[in-house]
Amino acid sequence: MDSLVVLVLCLSCLLLLSLWRQSSGRGKLPPGPTPLPVIGNILQIGIKDISKSLTNLSKVYGPVFTLYFGLKPIVVLHGYEAVKEALIDLGEEFSGRGIFPLAERANRGFGIVFSNGKKWKEIRRFSLMTLRNFGMGKRSIEDRVQEEARCLVEELRKTKASPCDPTFILGCAPCNVICSIIFHKRFDYKDQQFLNLMEKLNENIKILSSPWIQICNNFSPIIDYFPGTHNKLLKNVAFMKSYILEKVKEHQESMDMNNPQDFIDCFLMKMEKEKHNQPSEFTIESLENTAVDLFGAGTETTSTTLRYALLLLLKHPEVTAKVQEEIERVIGRNRSPCMQDRSHMPYTDAVVHEVQRYIDLLPTSLPHAVTCDIKFRNYLIPKGTTILISLTSVLHDNKEFPNPEMFDPHHFLDEGGNFKKSKYFMPFSAGKRICVGEALAGMELFLFLTSILQNFNLKSLVDPKNLDTTPVVNGFASVPPFYQLCFIPV
């Protein structure tokens, strides 16, 4: 009986604490739906499609509103004006990374994606500088992407125009580009180590996009005490870190300090320079996690976009025909596509942009946080508050993009057929937390897609009208449904 009384008292205290925290903070924060004790607004949000729920709530509470995930307040920004004001106009104040408990377990605050403060700034600055020195957006990395595009075309030829699921092959190409940047090595598509790495990356994007992960991140005790797919994700990350550590040891034994070959060499050189400046942010643990982040951000996002792009091109054969006509006119058949071609191919450029806009790969991006107490639109948001960005509300804005739910390359073309930029184009987020590999991803999408369409016609196994382009999961990332196609050599 005594234990029951204690339990009831504990629960009562928890409920009172929950109510007090919510009521004391709500006077400062933007308005929002009334949260339930302990669980907050979790029942009012469709976990399978958070973005749709945010759109519905914005119609009631406006472009800036507050939700509670458990006891934790989260300020939501919906629509271009609110997102721009926060991420661009007040970029420094909104540059923090929001709480992501599962990532905390995986990387302990290291790396480039989930770190904060001085650690994040130094690692991000170093990573950007190193990638630029190796030619991100310049010639040397373009050579690597072109080489991988040629290998991709050869792998597709091996399908002999038979029906195939493109998931694996389209994942190999961007993964190999990242391998060449980090390890100075590309792998054969049949290499077992490479296959294991690909498998872990593919599993992780599916797990991260599941409703279960949303629950884990908002009720963090689940991570330590409950079984579930989150444990598989943590094991996959541990596998990748151990693999990278092996490569780091190989580099330490063979590195030429006067001739760095890749990202690992550059990081080890930085560690050597910083060894007298303790404590340094440049450690082996930081290198492991930064490399894992580059793999995660640079492989599955690009391969998922490529997979979605081919599905949309199957669905819209008239678009595919126009792209192939432009390829034939500008590039021809006797040389590989290059980035200089893009400025002469406005329709193809528009298609690449429209694919990214339409699929809305990361509907709410990753959570941000404010780095200080900030007054925002007459609300006071306390330091450390998590900020949720609705990228969907920007990419699918119906004023900027008429009929935003329709796939239409003319969203990025003017009346004369010239490519038209849009400030609403934010597939990689915006501001200080914009994806480090934005330029690389854009290069890969253009070169891989043009190389495929230069060499193959795409054949659907069903009537294009019957192809479903609805994402199968739409949590962290929008993942396309399973499909097969035939690559018919031109």
Rank of each mutant, 00 (worst) to 15 (best):
G117N: 11
H368V: 04
I207D: 03
N466V: 10
G431Q: 05
V153T: 06
E285W: 04
W120G: 05
T386Q: 10
K52D: 06
G91F: 07
L311P: 01
P489G: 05
G70F: 05
L67P: 00
P427L: 07
L395Q: 11
N398P: 13
M339A: 12
I182V: 14
Q278V: 09
E444V: 03
T167H: 13
M129P: 04
S127L: 14
S53K: 15
F219P: 03
S303G: 11
F239L: 11
D165Q: 01
S478G: 08
T66V: 03
F100M: 15
L388Q: 04
S162M: 13
K28G: 12
R132V: 12
N277V: 12
V8A: 12
K28N: 14
S343R: 10
H410A: 11
T450Q: 00
F100V: 11
I264Y: 03
S3E: 12
L156D: 00
V479G: 12
T470M: 07
L77W: 01
G384V: 00
E246V: 04
F114V: 07
K459G: 06
G117Y: 10
I452N: 00
E415D: 14
K232V: 13
L361G: 12
F267V: 03
R357S: 01
V370Q: 04
L102N: 08
H316W: 08
C338Y: 06
E354H: 01
S115L: 05
F219D: 02
L36N: 05
K247H: 10
G416D: 12
D349V: 13
V394Y: 14
G98S: 10
N277S: 12
L447P: 00
I42V: 15
F110M: 15
L54V: 12
D191E: 07
G135A: 12
L36F: 15
D414Q: 05
I264L: 10
P402H: 14
S140V: 07
P221C: 12
I327R: 01
M255G: 13
S209P: 05
W120V: 06
L268E: 05
K399S: 15
E444G: 03
S286A: 14
G475P: 06
L87Y: 13
I88G: 15
E288N: 14
N116I: 04
R144H: 13
E122I: 08
Q484S: 07
K423Q: 12
D463N: 11
E93D: 09
R26D: 09
G417N: 10
K121P: 12
C172T: 04
P427M: 10
L445I: 04
L15Y: 11
S365V: 10
G79T: 03
S343E: 11
A350Q: 01
G27R: 10
G384C: 04
L102K: 08
N218I: 14
L312G: 01
L11F: 13
C372P: 00
L54P: 01
K200S: 10
P37F: 06
Q22H: 12
Y189D: 01
R186A: 02
G27F: 13
L131Y: 05
N196M: 12
P317T: 09
I488R: 04
I42M: 08
N378V: 01
F126N: 05
F263S: 04
T371C: 11
N236A: 02
F114T: 12
L447V: 10
F407V: 01
P363L: 05
L14Q: 04
V462E: 14
S254I: 13
N218T: 11
G79V: 00
D463M: 07
P382R: 07
V113Q: 15
A291T: 09
A321P: 03
Y483F: 11
K121G: 10
M443L: 06
R21N: 10
F482A: 14
F194H: 04
K315E: 02
I50S: 07
S95Y: 05
R144F: 13
N41C: 03
G62Y: 00
C338T: 13
N133Q: 15
P260C: 11
G98V: 07
L380M: 08
P427Q: 14
E444W: 03
L388M: 15
F263D: 02
V473Q: 15
A149G: 05
P31C: 04
S12K: 02
P363V: 06
T470V: 09
L449C: 07
L131F: 10
P37V: 03
L311V: 05
C172P: 02
S393P: 08
P35D: 01
K185I: 05
V490H: 12
I244G: 01
C216V: 09
W120M: 11
D49Y: 02
S24F: 09
F448S: 01
P427H: 10
L485F: 01
T392K: 10
I213M: 15
L131T: 06
G135W: 12
P481A: 10
I74D: 01
I39M: 07
D49C: 06
L311M: 06
E400I: 06
T450F: 00
H184K: 15
N277Y: 14
M406R: 10
H353T: 03
D408W: 05
G417D: 10
D89K: 04
C216F: 13
R329D: 09
Q214F: 09
D256K: 09
Q252L: 11
V5Y: 14
P480H: 02
F183Y: 05
F428V: 04
P480S: 04
V113A: 15
